[in-house]
C-alpha cells in the first residue's frame, strides 16, 4: 500500500475536502491503484533531463502598467453567495 487511510485524511484536509468513512475506504483503494500505475515512471532514466512545464517556449509576457477599465463593483458582487455592504460575507474567521 502506497497510501494509508490516515494519509487520505491528511491530503483531504490540505485539499479542503471531507469524506465519509465509506468514501475514505474507496478513495484509499482507488488512489493506491492509480499510484501503483504511476510507479511505471520509475523505469525511465531521467538523469539530467530538464522538467517540462510548458510545451511552447514563451517569454514572460510583460506589459505597460496602465490603468484600464475594470469590472464594476456590482458586477463583481453579482455572483456572491452572500454579501454585505460592498463586501463578500463569510462565516466568522477568528475565534
Amino acid at each position: 500500500m502506497k497510501i494509508t487511510k490516515e494519509q487520505v485524511e491528511y491530503v483531504a484536509h490540505l485539499a479542503r475536502l471531507e469524506f465519509s468513512e465509506e468514501e475514505k475506504g474507496k478513495f484509499t483503494t482507488q488512489l493506491n491503484n492509480i499510484l501503483l500505475y504511476m510507479e511505471k515512471l520509475g523505469e525511465v532514466d531521467t538523469t539530467g533531463v530538464e522538467p517540462e512545464t510548458h510545451a511552447i517556449a514563451i517569454q514572460n509576457a510583460f506589459r505597460e502598467d496602465v490603468v484600464r477599465e475594470s469590472l464594476p463593483h456590482e458586477l463583481s458582487l453579482a455572483n456572491a453567495p452572500s454579501e454585505s455592504g460592498n463586501c463578500y460575507r463569510v462565516p466568522k474567521v477568528i475565534e
Partner: peptide
C-alpha cells in the same frame, strides 16, 4: 473531480513533489 484533486494534492505535497510531479515533468520532456 474530488479523486483528481486528491491525486494532485498528494503529488504536490511535501515529500512527494520530486517523486511524482518533477519526475512526470521530466518524462514529459522526453
Amino acid at each position: 473531480v474530488k479523486r483528481r484533486i486528491m491525486i494532485g494534492t498528494y503529488a504536490l505535497s511535501s515529500g512527494y513533489y520530486d517523486a511524482y510531479y518533477k519526475k512526470a515533468s521530466q518524462v514529459r520532456t522526453l
